[in-house]
């Protein structure tokens, strides 16, 4: 089992999306539990991917290729996972705030969350405040993640937080913020619960806020 799990991890790390489904099938055929493939394989390797990304050892293209490989593998694995929901870590609503159309960084955060077993609801880019509020209300996520890559749109993060406060939902969700110009000081200033400098730290921060 260790052998095939390692093959899966290598395939994800080197972004071999074309081989991952065959490897997952091989593992299932060898009676490796789907939840083990997820935990020992995908979640473990995405942790590694995140760590290497934090250290700038690997970069956006490799992270995206790894994430795509993981996605492809997960698509095959999902039907086998329905039974056990034990890996469910939480639910995240995420989006780039209004005025901000940057997609790549936010997508990497999505993938890291998925890799860590979160259910991710991606609202996309240039998301109006109301849409965040609506989704917090209806989806009841534990985490709301806001992205801004552009100085003039940073203040839109505060607008979202204020809108949640006005809607009486502020204490229903933990809010984390990120993006190139965002800093811990800024996050504190606008009343966010957490800040993370990159996609993998975002997951760590979210887990920390959820107390696990």
């Amino acid at each position: 089992m260790v052998d095939i799990i390692n093959k899966i991890k290598d395939a994800v790390m080197s972004g071999q999306a074309d081989q991952i489904q065959a490897l997952v099938k091989e593992a299932l055929a060898a009676d490796v539990k789907a939840s083990d493939i997820l935990k020992e394989g995908f979640i473990a390797v995405m942790d590694e991917v995140g760590e290497k990304m934090s250290k700038d050892e690997i970069f956006i293209p490799e992270v995206l290729a790894a994430a795509k490989t993981m996605q492809t593998g997960l698509d095959l694995l999902k039907p086998y996972l329905v039974e056990s929901e034990s890996e469910y870590t939480g639910k995240v609503v995420i989006g780039s705030v209004k005025g901000d159309v940057h997609d790549i960084g936010k997508n990497m955060v999505c993938m890291m969350f998925e890799g860590a077993g979160f259910e991710v609801i991606d609202l996309g880019v240039n998301v109006p405040d109301e849409e965040f509020v609506e989704n917090v209300k209806n989806q009841q996520p534990q985490i709301l993640a806001l992205s801004s890559l552009y100085t003039p749109t940073m203040l839109a993060m505060k607008d979202v937080i204020d809108a949640l406060t006005d809607a009486g939902l502020r204490d229903k969700v933990k809010i984390i913020v990120g993006g190139a110009p965002v800093t811990q000081l800024f996050a504190d200033d606008i009343g966010a619960d957490g800040y993370a400098p990159d996609a993998s730290k975002a997951v760590l921060k979210a887990k920390e806020l959820l107390g696990n």
């Binding site: 293209p61 995206l64 790549i104």
Partner: peptide, 16 residues
């Protein structure tokens, strides 16, 4: 460019 999906694809492809 900032509103074009194909720009973000081209961008990622050009990083290496």
């Amino acid at each position: 460019l900032s509103t074009r999906v194909d720009f973000q694809e081209e961008f990622v492809n050009a990083l290496n």
